[in-house]
């Protein structure tokens, strides 16, 4: 089992470091992006797919994948859905407020392994957030990758995360971007249906592709099945798994899925490792 042994913060991985809220941007009615800058010292250095633990004074702490470019040295961005107590409290933050950040934690997306070949990025709903840093990284070094396809599925046209960026990416000639929704009004001129159905139309060579998938578990299951059926090597299909993370350093036990601690053995895993684990109900 590989583990990411990045030494996060100077005070130790259990103690947060203060970050200031520079900006809060509402992406959707229930989803917002925080832009955070370190109060002192260097910005957190991370790789796409890694997770930060954000601590809100008086509310608690939650794990959020970092969705900004890993090349930025001024700030990190966290895209958060206001679902529970902590994420709703964080939604009330204003520019200038302090939060605590611990991280980065976890095994990142296999960017180095993906270089030199085709890349398929498949995102569902808010799953686009952990993959946005992948797209940024690819665009930074675009010539080191071959054909790059991005397939995004969401609930309906009003639910598209990073909609403006999606359109920018779609208009690029060096990216093949397809978007689909589960349902739409008749004014929608795009696709309606499963994100898997977009894949056969896209411009990647299954025999030479690395796939990175993020979304609800059921979506990742049918997408990975679809990609494998198309001929993508199972060892090159990567998923990011989700369970509650508390300590994020492999000591509290909560994030276990079978023998894997999602916080240090994941959350990114190649399909063969997690496929048997996803098959067992309530594992």
């Amino acid at each position: 089992m590989t583990s990411a042994v990045t030494t996060p913060t100077a005070a130790g991985p259990m103690v947060p470091v203060p970050y200031r809220v520079a900006h809060i941007h509402w992406e959707l009615s229930d989803t917002y992006t925080l832009t955070l800058t370190p109060e002192s010292g260097a910005n957190m250095s991370f790789e796409p797919g890694q997770v930060a633990m954000i601590y809100i004074l008086g509310a608690g702490e939650v794990p959020i994948s970092v969705s900004s470019s890993s090349r930025r040295d001024d700030a990190i961005q966290l895209t958060i859905r206001a679902g529970g107590y902590v994420t709703k409290a964080a939604a009330r933050l204003a520019a200038g407020d302090t939060v605590g950040i611990r991280g980065p934690f976890g095994v990142p997306w296999p960017m180095e392994q993906a270089r030199g070949g085709d890349v398929v990025v498949v995102a569902g709903g808010i799953g686009l957030a952990p993959l946005r840093s992948v797209i940024y990284e690819i665009l930074e070094d675009r010539h080191t990758f071959e054909d790059v396809s991005v397939a995004y599925g969401s609930r309906d046209p009003g639910f598209l995360l990073y909609e403006a960026e999606l359109h920018d990416w779609r208009s690029r000639f060096d990216l093949d971007v397809e978007i689909t929704v589960d349902r739409a009004p008749t004014s929608w001129r795009g696709d309606v249906g499963l994100v898997t159905d977009l894949l056969p139309r896209m411009e990647f060579d299954p025999a030479n592709a690395t796939a990175m998938i993020c979304g609800p578990e059921i979506m990742m299951k049918f997408v990975s099945r679809g990609l494998a059926d198309m001929g993508v090597d199972r060892e090159r299909i990567y998923l990011t798994m989700e369970r509650n993370m508390k300590c994020a350093i492999g000591l509290c036990g909560h994030c276990q899925l079978g023998p894997q601690f999602l916080c240090k053995d994941g959350p990114v895993f190649p399909l063969p490792v997690v496929e048997p684990l996803m098959e067992v109900e309530e594992l």
Partner: peptide, 16 residues
């Protein structure tokens, strides 16, 4: 199969 999956509305809450 696709219709059932779309019916599940999997993206709104991202939860079973």
């Amino acid at each position: 199969e696709a219709t059932r999956m779309q019916l599940l509305d999997i993206y709104s809450d991202q939860r079973p």
